[in-house]
Amino acid sequence: MRIFKPQYSKLLDEELMVMLGKGDKRAFDEVYKRYSQPLFGYFMKLLARDNEKCEDMVHDLFAKIIRKPEYFDTSRSFRTWVYSVASNMCKNEYKRMAVRKNVKSDLEPAEFLKSHEDTLKTVHEKRFSDRLQAQLEEMDEKHKSVFVLRHFDGFSMKEIAEALEINEGTVKSRLFYATKTLASALKEFNPIYQ
């Protein structure tokens, strides 16, 4: 039994999961604080930016963690594990929805202009982001997830391989393919072509 409460912010994800498994609410709060936003971003990129759907996905993922913390193998990295769960959830969602195209919950143009009317740079970023999202949606799931994990969630090749349960060579191959495809599709943003 601990006499003093641990500093949750300094604990490792895996330690927090052990405490969460014992019913420590503060450990859960810390895990949620660390991962809710990145996971939401991950779902947003993979699920056509359906805000409501992505919120539900985040909720479902954390509900799984609450109800079945024993599913997490403490010898593994929590980060890769939680993203592998998220990735599987996305696969299931794809299967359920069959084809998800153009379900974007884009902000209305007026709203967009209202909030981003300051600089041209912001407009450019917004345009690029939208186009990128559109291209990602057209891409198949296996290339998209590798690309998102690498460039949006900052995973290393090894972590991606672990999270998606594929070998590193495959990760590299998929990542290069996705990058090449997107780079080609988004070349309009390259100043050379403008």
Binding site: F128, T179, L182, A183, S184, N190
Partner: peptide, 9 residues
């Protein structure tokens, strides 16, 4: 160049 631009964005 395309890949490079993508990385920048």
């Amino acid at each position: 160049e395309e890949a490079r631009q993508l990385m920048k964005e």
